[in-house]
Design a protein around this nucleic acid. Sequence first.
DNA 1: CATGAATGAGAGTTCATTCAT
DNA 2: GATGAATGAACTCTCATTCAT
Lengths: 194, 194, 194, 194
Amino acid sequence: MSEKSVQKKKYIVETARGIFMEKGYKEVTMKDIVEACQISRGGLYLYFSSTKELFEEVLRMEQEDADDVFERSITKEATPAEILALFFKEQKRELLNKKPSLGKAVYEYFFANQIPNRENLLKKQFDAAVYVLENLIMAGVEREEFYCEDPRGYARNIMYVLEGLKIASHTRGISEAAVDREIMFVMQGLLAEE
Amino acid sequence: MSEKSVQKKKYIVETARGIFMEKGYKEVTMKDIVEACQISRGGLYLYFSSTKELFEEVLRMEQEDADDVFERSITKEATPAEILALFFKEQKRELLNKKPSLGKAVYEYFFANQIPNRENLLKKQFDAAVYVLENLIMAGVEREEFYCEDPRGYARNIMYVLEGLKIASHTRGISEAAVDREIMFVMQGLLAEE
Amino acid sequence: MSEKSVQKKKYIVETARGIFMEKGYKEVTMKDIVEACQISRGGLYLYFSSTKELFEEVLRMEQEDADDVFERSITKEATPAEILALFFKEQKRELLNKKPSLGKAVYEYFFANQIPNRENLLKKQFDAAVYVLENLIMAGVEREEFYCEDPRGYARNIMYVLEGLKIASHTRGISEAAVDREIMFVMQGLLAEE
Amino acid sequence: MSEKSVQKKKYIVETARGIFMEKGYKEVTMKDIVEACQISRGGLYLYFSSTKELFEEVLRMEQEDADDVFERSITKEATPAEILALFFKEQKRELLNKKPSLGKAVYEYFFANQIPNRENLLKKQFDAAVYVLENLIMAGVEREEFYCEDPRGYARNIMYVLEGLKIASHTRGISEAAVDREIMFVMQGLLAEE
DNA sequence: CATGAATGAGAGTTCATTCAT
DNA sequence: GATGAATGAACTCTCATTCAT
């Protein structure tokens, strides 16, 4: 594939990404993509032969960008508590739809397609996040900022809560207060000198 | 509406319910319903003019049946811990898809349609469950079975975790061990003499 | 299927028959049919879901009508030689495209689709014709109109020649003289007092 | 056209020939050719602007090679009966698809395109074969191997039978026994001392 | 000459929805 | 009320063909 092709493919993926953000996954048709990209019907099929294929590419791209997000937070000179706070802040922004996101499309996609665990992006991201949180908590415990007897369990609990919140946000909407409340709850659990 | 009509409507809703369980929400077409019900196309339209409308009726019906589920557990002579264990057992069954459920369809529906909070079934059920759990926890604290400083917060935490687990179950699959782990985690948090 | 449906289906098949006669098999699209029948796209799909299916119905219809053709000739009070002459006359008309026919479409269909021998219309018709010809020849021999040592072999030879002529007619065109010549040749073979 | 161009054109024609053998005429697309030849889309169009044009070139090439086939048989020191037997053996191989052939594609082509007699390859080949057979028969009669009053008629009859058999082979399949039977029949007709 | 990305016409197919009976 | 045939919009997908490089 030529350099130009690569560029165009990237352009399509990025344009499509916007559409998926806006309309979710299931509603998007090849026609939508074609129109948004201002290319011909056949032209699109040169690169992707279904919205599924296209969305999977969007996902792949997303993943590449995503990996460093966490690292950015961590490499900074900050206490575990600060990093955690930052992490929650970031999550909160997304939960409240302050920044447009693929969230809804991603869930629709995974509802519509049974993806085996091995390649399941959702699972991978979840597990990765649990791993980072666990380390963060352990570091906090070490420094006596946190108190926690089961860091991995706690990390998982946090992630499931966040997933629950995300779903709530997409299916009913959620108030800032509600998000804060949940974040406070898990934070307090860590800080509590019990 | 005549008695016969009411019967027929009910029949349609119940048949449709089965289809939604099987195929989710988005994939179901009016044709699917018509065929499953063995009625005429036009006949269906006399009662429902879209799968959306139909699904909403399914949901309404579901809700009526659902309310007593909890009560059944509670009215028994059992300690809060026992009732909670029962509640979790029930949840676990659904999480592991041991019993067919509308779960997937419900999420698909709420992803596809923005439903205002007031009438949002998902929210109502969530809030109701939180309320019951909260009372349960308070009762447990009273009897010194549980230890908990923020029953409502804890109840909410539990419900968000369950929602997270449910999503995990629908989008990636989840192992029994994973469910048990999470249940254990929140149970231990209540029992811990801290 | 209602009476009206049956009528409409028949109407479609008959209209399609005309198109197949005109354009052959492979060139015909569902759109052609739709336009010729003046029905809607979806309407056609109610009855047939491909030109193949439709053509097969045309074929089936054709077959029903065809069976008696031979019998008509035979039940008459005529000598075998006369009947044979009549048969050839009929064949000639078709060979020279004096009457529009499905011939071309039929061949295109059987070229495009490998049909097992059992259900193969072409084979059935061929075998049936051989059988009738054989009996005709035997009857002629009995009456000493014909001379033939191997009626079945002769019948088969005739049919293969006719098939060859038919192909010639469709792929290159054939002159009346050429047809006559071949018919004469096989006729003479039967009549020759050798 | 440069030497290189001529080579390339030849290469395309030969590759295409293989595809036509495999898929017939109508099913083959320019894309198929392009892929099989591993050349560019535009590149193909420099030489041929349709599958029709390309197939016609294949046909032309075929014809050049074909002419000597017969001669090979004839120049040998063999009796007419032996040559004829050889000829039938060759025909039989093709009829039974023992060797891959353009047969099906050729018929599809001539069904799809009305080609005037003058340039019609099928007619030319037929007439040529009749001519050779006629001479062969006459030679046989001379040597008293054969008995035949109308060599040309007989030659034509043979060729039409062979054409019929070929069609049968492509549209229904034909057994070796059936082929043998027909060949025997025409052979016997020649040998019969009547 | 050669490439292969791009085009757009057009075939196929499905579905929600209507309406005469 | 009930039927189911009919409609037509919308979508998917493929191909011959062109054209800038």
